[in-house]
Design a protein around this nucleic acid. Structure first.
Lengths: 158, 158
DNA sequence: GATTAGGTTTAGGTTAACCTAAATTTGTAA
DNA sequence: TTACAAATTTAGGTTAACCTAAACCTAATC
């Protein structure tokens, strides 16, 4: 079974591989603010689940399944962060909070949050009956005809 | 130190006292989906912290400090729920997610979320340059003059 | 007053996720 | 090649929050 903690490790590994090209015990430990032995232990668990390939003293890589999980967690993270930034939470705090919140949203909430963000980004800062428009967007998956963004180049459902 | 779990118990106790006038082991157990012995154990911890008055076989009441914590958790809960409902998450799911998210938001994010909700509720569904207006509201703590809600009876900063 | 049912607590155990200290491996430099 | 420093793992321990089973209270009924 996946836990919040295992998700955190997968995400950290994913980011480390992306940013540094590798994921070692010490790096992940310092990224997550834990001690190296904790990381080794978790590497074993992730390996047993088939989410990473672990080779002693060398570090880990993600399996396809592990990468899928990591990507989806990371995706939720950036959606939450984006929303928080939209309502003017500082980007450091938004990122920190996203880390914690990312494990606790249902599919439904994630979907709606995404819908909301997409709507705002595609129909911004204009004379807009925005909540009515959002309701329409929510139902039809495209901007209403009288929305200033609707006749522009970019649709809302990409 | 307070933990997510202790917060959950305080909130459940608070709601039980409000809804039923008392908070017994079995009730809290069933509210939180745990077994009675777990509740007894947590009652002891809460009692030791000075957040509840625990009397064996009788249940708990909240101390002033306990009630303060419970109220603030409960407050965050309803803000998160309200926001999720605003973006059309079903109310059951919104409530469920709020339960989990409520423990993980910083003061800053809570404040901004509140600001956002207040803004929306006071400046709704009109011809509104809503994100610009939100920016203004965020900065000045009142609706801009050209906001349809601004000349109505109710201000934005109550 | 004795019995009993239901609620509550105690006793003891499990698990996840951490930790420190000690051992081990690895790569590099003398 | 040997020796050492740094990284990693192993061994063993801690804590929070749960659990089951058994013991214990309490209030109602006979």
């Amino acid at each position: 079974m996946i836990t919040k903690s295992l998700e955190d490790y997968l995400e950290a590994i994913y980011n480390s591989l992306k940013d540094r090209g590798h994921a070692s015990t010490n790096e992940i430990a310092s990224d997550l603010g834990v001690k190296p032995p904790s990381v080794t232990e978790m590497f074993h668990k992730l390996n047993k689940q088939g989410w990473v390939n672990y080779r002693k003293y060398e570090g880990v890589t993600l399996t396809r399944e592990g990468e899928e999980i990591a990507k989806s967690v990371s995706d939720v993270h950036s959606k939450v962060r984006k929303f928080l930034e939209l309502i003017h939470v500082s980007s450091e705090q938004a990122d920190e909070d996203a880390c914690k919140v990312e494990h606790h949203l249902s599919e439904e909430s994630i979907g709606q949050l995404n819908m909301f963000i997409e709507f705002i980004e595609n129909c911004p800062a204009e004379e807009v009956r925005w909540i009515e428009h959002f309701n329409y967007f929510n139902e039809h998956h495209e901007l209403p005809l009288d929305c200033p963004g609707a006749d522009k180049e970019k649709g809302c459902d990409d």
